[in-house]
C-alpha cells in the first residue's frame, strides 16, 4: 500500500467499483505528496461531486468535499486565505468541464497555486454513465445510446489555453509517469493541472466493447502517444490513429501566479 500514513485506514476499502482507476490515481497523488515531503496538517484536499470527488474522504487530512462543479472555487478561497497550505483538488470530467467549466478556466487564468488532478473517465460515473463533455464522439453512454454526437473537450489543452503554469496528461496505466507529473506540478508555482485518463469499467467500459478492466487499461495505454512523438508525426504527415491522445508534459511556464507563499 502506497503512503500508508496518508490513508484513512478506517474508511477502506473505498466505495469504488472493482477495477475503477480512481484508486490508482489516489495512490499516485499520495506518492507525489510523500515525495514532496508535505506535512499532513498543512495539506488540504478539495473536491466537487462525483466518484472521483470522493477521493478526499479516504485521505487523513483536512478536506472539503463540496458541491458539484465548485471545487476550484472553494479551493481558491482556502488557498488565498492560507497561502502556506498545500492545496490539492480532485475532480472529474463532469465536475470540472461541464458544471464547473467556468471555474476551471478562471482558476487557470488566475493561476492560483494549487494542484488539480482530474480523473477523466469520459463519463458521469456516479450518476450511472451519462455522456459528459469528454465522451468521445461515437461512444455509447446511457444518454448517447446511438453514439455521442457532440465534439469532446481536450481538458489539458483547455488548461494550457486558459493559462495554467503546469499542464500534463497521463493515464491510470502510466503510474510512474503520472506520479512524476503530479509531483512536478506540485513543485511549479501557480496552477498545475494534471489530467489522468482513467477507466470506469462499470459505466463506460461495459458499453464500449471493453469488457474487462485490463482491456480498458490496455486501451488507454495503446492510445496514448507521447507529446514529442505526436508532434513528430504531425510534422512528418504521419496519420494519427483514431482515438489517440497525447500524454506527457504539455506546458511548464512561469506566468504570474496567485496565492504563492512568499
Amino acid at each position: 500500500m502506497i503512503a500508508p500514513d496518508w490513508f484513512r485506514d478506517d474508511r477502506l476499502p473505498h466505495i469504488y467499483c472493482t477495477g475503477c482507476g480512481n484508486g490508482t490515481i489516489i495512490n499516485c497523488t499520495l506518492a507525489a505528496v510523500e515525495e514532496m515531503g508535505w506535512k499532513r496538517d498543512e495539506t488540504i484536499f478539495v473536491s466537487g461531486i462525483g466518484c472521483s470527488s470522493r477521493a478526499p474522504g479516504y485521505i487523513l487530512t483536512d478536506s472539503l468535499h463540496t458541491t458539484h462543479g465548485r471545487a476550484l472555487a472553494f479551493a481558491t478561497g482556502v488557498k488565498m486565505a492560507r497561502p502556506d497550505f498545500n492545496v490539492v483538488v480532485f475532480t472529474g470530467d463532469g465536475d470540472l468541464a461541464a458544471i464547473g467549466g467556468n471555474h476551471f478556466i478562471h482558476a487557470c487564468r488566475r493561476n492560483v497555486d494549487m494542484t488539480v488532478v482530474c480523473m477523466n473517465n469520459y463519463i458521469y460515473g456516479m450518476t450511472g454513465g451519462q455522456g459528459s463533455p469528454t465522451t468521445p464522439p461515437g461512444a455509447i453512454s446511457s444518454t448517447t445510446p446511438y453514439g455521442a454526437s457532440e465534439p469532446a473537450f481536450d481538458l489539458a489543452e483547455l488548461a494550457v489555453a486558459a493559462g495554467a503554469n503546469y499542464v500534463a496528461r497521463w493515464t491510470s496505466y502510466h503510474v510512474k509517469e503520472l506520479t512524476k507529473a503530479i509531483a512536478a506540478g506540485m513543485q511549479t508555482p501557480g496552477l498545475a493541472f494534471v489530467e489522468a485518463r482513467t477507466q470506469c469499467p462499470t459505466n463506460y467500459g461495459r458499453h464500449n466493447k471493453l469488457r474487462t478492466v485490463p482491456a480498458m487499461v490496455e486501451h488507454l495505454r495503446s492510445h496514448a502517444i507521447l507529446v514529442r512523438k505526436y508532434e513528430r508525426m504531425v510534422a512528418e504527415g504521419v496519420p494519427i490513429p483514431e482515438g489517440a491522445f497525447t500524454v506527457g508534459e504539455l506546458v511548464r511556464r512561469s506566468r504570474p501566479a496567485m496565492g504563492v507563499q512568499r
Binding site: V46, D62, L64, T66, T67, G69, R70, A73, F74, A75, T76, G77, V78, K79, M80, A81, R82, F85, N102, H103, H106
Partner: peptide, 26 residues
C-alpha cells in the same frame, strides 16, 4: 485580508466557505 473578485456568485460563496474553513472571518 484578501479581496477577490470571483467569476460569479456560485464561486463567491464557495470561496467564502473555503476561506471560512481556514478560520478566517469571511
Amino acid at each position: 485580508g484578501v479581496f477577490i473578485s470571483m467569476e460569479d456568485e456560485l464561486a463567491s460563496i464557495a470561496a467564502v466557505i473555503g476561506a471560512a474553513w481556514t478560520g478566517a472571518r469571511a
